[in-house]
């Protein structure tokens, strides 16, 4: 059982900064999008990265996928160091991604079958077997085999996302990066796609990195979470623990902001003090706490 416990993916001290140029084209500073992020995902686990826009979630995903070279830090898959954009092809056999918007991640001029065939071709899957594999993949995501000859515009959003999942599964990867896989879908469709992902994860022993801004969904799907704020993981741990006993102020604010539909959920939301009669912004709340902390120190001395 030791192999199960060992992490499949390890992200160590990952940093990505982008140069900022002023109006005259000279370098005027640097934007740190991902700031020393470390986490690991055990085999068969579902790790959730939650954060708001600009927190660095997608940048992390892109670095794991090898689409972006990190400024610093390492990405380890199994025991192999896969940092950087080198060896992307070999890595794509093990790591695949499902993108946010199935409307734009499928080529409108390819049939569904052709889209799913792309990774098979890239990894030299035996030509004679491809058709059978495509049918098999469509079956895994609960779509009829006849869909192989259809075009994306003939499919609903949920069906398109199933196709995107089938395409990610084509080369039998170990890790799938899900970047907001259901945020473009209606809630009833979302529920079914999530159910499918859970089911597939169990059957195929997949490991997921799940990126989302939807905290309620995160609570239900991930077994461990990391909360990102401005490129840093401010809190992480088992999902239930983080949601029931959030320690960091930002996590508390985030959970308190979720619109909920039952009294039980309401009871779970931490109380956030209003500042000037308004719900504070993250910066304001953190600044206030910071100042409280610094003013408290002299009293203790």
């Amino acid at each position: 059982m030791n192999a199960r416990q060992s992490p499949l993916l390890e992200v160590v001290d990952l940093v990505k900064s982008f140069p900022v140029y002023n109006a005259f084209g000279s370098r005027s500073g640097e934007l740190v999008a991902v700031d020393h992020v470390s986490f690991s995902i055990r085999r068969g686990g579902i790790y959730g990265l939650a954060g708001e826009s600009g927190s660095g979630k997608s940048t992390i995903a892109r670095m794991i996928m090898g689409l972006l070279a990190p400024t610093g830090g390492d990405v380890l898959l199994g025991s192999e160091n896969i940092t950087g954009t080198l060896g992307t092809r070999a890595r794509s056999r093990q790591v695949q991604m499902v993108f946010q918007n199935p409307g734009s991640s499928l080529n409108p001029r390819r049939t569904i079958g052709q889209s799913i065939a792309v990774p098979l071709e890239a990894h030299a899957y035996p030509r004679a077997d491809r058709r059978r594999r495509i049918t098999e993949l469509l079956d895994m995501v609960q779509l009829p085999a006849s869909f192989a000859d259809r075009y994306p515009h003939e499919l609903s959003g949920g069906q398109k996302q199933r196709v995107a999942i089938a395409r990610a599964l084509a080369v039998a990867p170990q890790l799938i990066v899900l970047d907001e896989p259901t945020s473009a879908l209606d809630v009833s469709v979302q529920a079914k796609v999530i159910e499918l992902l859970t089911e597939l994860g169990r059957q195929l022993d997949l490991t997921y990195l799940f990126i989302s801004h939807d905290l309620s969904l995160m609570r239900n799907f991930a077994d461990e979470v990391g909360i990102l704020y401005r490129g840093r993981i401010v809190e992480s741990g088992p999902t239930a623990k983080v949601f029931e006993h959030p320690e960091h102020d930002y996590t508390r604010l985030l959970i308190a902001s979720v619109p909920v539909i039952s009294a039980e959920e309401e009871a779970l939301r931490p109380h956030i003090p209003l500042i000037d009669g308004e719900i504070p912004t993250a910066e304001k709340l953190l600044a206030l706490r910071e100042s409280q902390r610094t003013t408290e120190v002299p009293k203790r001395i």
Binding site: S188, Q190, A191, S216, L217, R219, N220, T239, E264, L268
Partner: peptide, 15 residues
Amino acid sequence: RALIDAVPRLTGARP
């Protein structure tokens, strides 16, 4: 009912 059940809960309770 189906719509309400499809909403993921903050409590993590499976609908």
